[in-house]
Amino acid sequence: MRIGVCVKQVPDTDSQLRIADSGRWIDDSDLNWVISSCDLCALEEALLLAEAEVSRGEERPELVVFSLGPARVEEALRKALALGADRAVHLADEALQGGDALADGRALASAVAGERCDLVLTGAQSDDLGQAATPAVIAEILGCPYAWLVMAVELNRRRRSLRVVRELEGGMNEVLRLELPAVLAIQAGINRPRFASLRGTLQARKKPLRVEDRAGLGVDAGLVGAAGAGIETESVTLPPAGAGGVVIEGASAEAAAEELVAHLQREAVL
């Protein structure tokens, strides 16, 4: 059995972002890059599923991580290997870059199909583009069952099925049964991702990492990368300022507290 995990490398959420001179994206020259937060949960869930199989006396599923992105992405894949994945596939080709959920989903679906994964785990939503769509595209192209916002996974290997808890609005969940192969988009909070050990980090250097290009994936150039994207970003701007509340800035903590309390008294909320 093989579990694929898709991880995306994104700017650290605490990064100070600057809009690029082109006005179409952010200046990505000196950012701190990390694995998108839900994707770490997806990887953790794959590790937990593998460990649960082992503790049941079953053969450990193989864990393969996939990432589409430029050369820097290798670092994210090595991190995933350090955390316990067995192999990595890097979709690094220039022709694959600059896509949207449709283009990236097609490329990732080909890679996942090529590795014949029984189960694919992704994050629910990337921390940069936040489309919440790439895993749905992967499922659609593979023609397999899909669930978004997954909060618990139980694998029944004999029956080749999954019992999945999916989050709904307003503090409710639904329980689903899906058959393998399937794609599950994992929601933050399903688990607490582990940290890499020194031993894991050393081992990761020797684990196999395959670089894949468009031709190897067997997808048309017009369907992936910027050419295959259904949308084009024309500009990136700061969100408009709000309705203009009262802003207290530059005062000492005590002065700020006094000022706020005066306002709240006037508003009759104290």
Binding site: M151, R163, L168, E174
Partner: peptide, 10 residues
């Protein structure tokens, strides 16, 4: 493609 077994509070 999937079966809904039920709902529960989170």
């Amino acid at each position: 493609e999937r079966e809904t077994l039920g709902r529960e509070a989170a």
